[in-house]
Write a protein that binds this DNA or RNA. Structure first.
Lengths: 225, 225
DNA sequence: ATCCCTTTGTGAACCGATGCACAAAGTCGC
DNA sequence: GCGACTTTGTGCATCGGTTCACAAAGGGAT
């Protein structure tokens, strides 16, 4: 026989990984409202995806549903959390405590489960030493020491584009392999380092493209009345 | 004969649209450094993509290169800008001037070209009437009037998850069809409305997944020495 | 004017992701 | 214990996107 609930495939598709947090959030909401089991149809609805896609996504983790019934909410929360690595605590350092860095540090929600802001770092002597969100702001010169001391494994870059590559190189040099970049610049990193980018400007430009398209296209080839 | 440099295909792939802002940024940098022409190889390098992909992307806009030479930087900047709709000015309203909303309002860079923060709105009477980034904060009750008066066509939601759907519905009701959502919630919108989502928590969770994977997987099935 | 060199634009194979549709598997009522 | 019903898990067709590889196109030298 085989043990019934084992993650089968070590290779989970990237598209699936990107949706797991969505499912997890929906499940947390259901758990809080006391819902014990949920069908793929309902969960897919809450997460805004197709139910077949949801089932296929979950099937990559293992066979955690019961046919005729659905998925047990608490159990699925645990399995997804474990798969995403949220059963452990990740220490996050935020580099740059300008407007954005401050917002991130104070944004309690984003560090809800599994993540902990462990350090704030900035280059401006004016803010070094300040306390933001209960944390002391340390100097960028001590970046490497801070990362080592606090056990930081994920670094968030909330600094100007011009400074991003240099800081990126420094944190990689001391072993960081996960970076969330808010600076509007393409970081070049060696293999094995993951960079995820959040770029407000790009998102707005994509919206503008579609908005313009709705309004009649760039040439405004009006055949409307 | 045919006019040589006409956008040929009105259906530009979504993946291409998402990369055009990247190319545009790289081109702006080159223009500032006085570079007149650029090859697909060099531009692709600056944007961090494969050169064949870049050529195929640009070919969707038209035939704007010269074989044996490359692309004229200024001309390409204009063509991409036009395609993205950045030759016109988009009025953006930011709803919610908490930490994040404030950061966005002050973040000059993201409203660089084509975009203009035209209104700030919040529900907290404490901040309504304040001036942030040179703009008066208006009350959420006047949301519809503000959108109409300022000609807002893109709305940025920087509010708590619980309030997002309601505000979303209201702006859609007065004709807004482009929304950039920072609230950690799946918005449901009618067809024809574009929502783009920026979710810090999800990005971190994806990083955590890969970080854990590097460290040996969720089961820590160590067969290493 | 011709040849060689560079670089674009694209046909075609490939790859991953999506969604339909259904068999397999389980529950519940009687 | 059995049959009807529900819902999962997945095979398969399809689709969009990526990458390779090369013919076509243009520039510059001689």
């Amino acid at each position: 026989m085989k043990s019934p609930s084992q993650p089968r495939d070590r290779g989970i598709p990237e598209a699936t990984v990107a949706r797991l947090p969505l499912y997890l959030r929906a499940l947390h909401g259901m758990a809080e409202r006391g819902i014990a089991t949920v069908s793929s149809e309902d969960l897919a609805g809450a997460a805004g995806v197709n139910s077949a896609k949801l089932r296929k996504d979950l099937s990559h983790l293992g066979s955690y549903g019961t046919r005729g019934v659905g998925y047990e909410v608490e159990y699925l929360v645990y399995q997804i959390s474990r798969e995403l690595g949220l059963t452990q605590d990740w220490a996050v350092a935020i580099v740059g405590v300008g407007n954005l860095g401050r917002a991130l540090a104070n944004y309690g929600g984003f560090v809800s489960r599994g993540f902990r802001v462990a350090a704030l770092v900035d280059a401006d002597p004016e803010v070094v030493g300040d306390t933001i969100a209960g944390l002391n702001v340390e100097h960028i010169d001590d970046l490497e020491a801070v990362i080592a001391r606090r056990g930081v494994s994920i670094v968030v870059l909330a600094i100007p584009a011009a400074a991003a590559q240099k800081v990126c190189d420094r944190v990689i040099a001391v072993g960081v392999t996960s970076i969330l970049n808010f600076a509007p610049v393409v970081l070049s990193v060696p293999d094995g380092v993951d960079v995820r980018k959040v770029d407000l400007s790009i998102e707005l430009q994509i919206l503008a493209f579609h908005e313009q398209r709705k309004a009649g296209g760039p040439l405004m080839a009006v055949d409307s009345q």
